[in-house]
Amino acid sequence: MRAAISAIAEKGAATVRMSDIAERAGMSTGHILYHFGKKDRLLLEVLVWSEGDLGARFQQAADEAASPAEKLDLFVRAYLPRHPGDERYALWTQVLAQRHDDAGRTVLTALSDAWEERLEAVIREGRALGQFADVDLPEFVIRAVAMLNGLSEDVMFGRPRWQHTSAHTFALSALERELRPTGGA
């Protein structure tokens, strides 16, 4: 998986070849094909591995965070691409562009659901502590994720508006405004 991520980072998800990955992994192309069958399946498996790694890193940081507000900040940072061409987002884009059978759609849904569940947990904690407003959680998560997905596309596309301001700051500010408890701090 690390060899695949490295090859994808260098060549891009769309142009990386199985032989590029095999060479980095010190394996034959046949060996890679035996395990994954085709490039589309390999990219899906690499995405699962990458998201598992990112989810674990987010959870570790969230467990060490001092407040729900800090966890929300960490969530937005983990969710948004770091820069145009971010390898993880490029991989998402490539995988989403493929046709998937029911099993592939189930995997992609589970990956997306995991991020929504992380956000829900942060919001629940903030509400329980009185630090976040009592928003309609399912509706809030849909809006938040839709906004973050749109911002992610902008960042990946390299929209000039994000050269002078941060998509992270913009998103966090929008979420915090909606989560600000009424009549208080």
Rank of each mutant, 00 (worst) to 15 (best):
M1E: 07
R2W: 02
A3R: 08
A9W: 11
E10N: 04
K11H: 12
G12Q: 09
A13V: 07
T15Q: 15
E23V: 10
E23H: 14
T29N: 14
G30I: 04
H35E: 04
D40E: 15
R41G: 01
R41V: 12
V46E: 00
R57V: 06
F58T: 00
F58I: 02
Q59F: 00
Q59C: 08
Q59E: 13
Q60E: 15
A66R: 12
E70D: 13
F75C: 09
F75R: 00
W92N: 08
V95C: 11
D102T: 14
R105H: 14
T106R: 15
T106I: 07
L108C: 04
L108R: 03
D113A: 15
L119H: 07
A121N: 10
A121L: 09
E125G: 08
E125L: 12
G126D: 07
R127I: 14
A128V: 00
G130H: 06
Q131P: 02
D136I: 11
F140Q: 00
I142G: 07
G150T: 08
L151C: 06
L151D: 05
V155D: 09
S166N: 02
H168Y: 09
T169K: 14
F170D: 10
A171P: 04
S173K: 06
L175I: 03
E176Y: 00
E178T: 13
T182W: 12
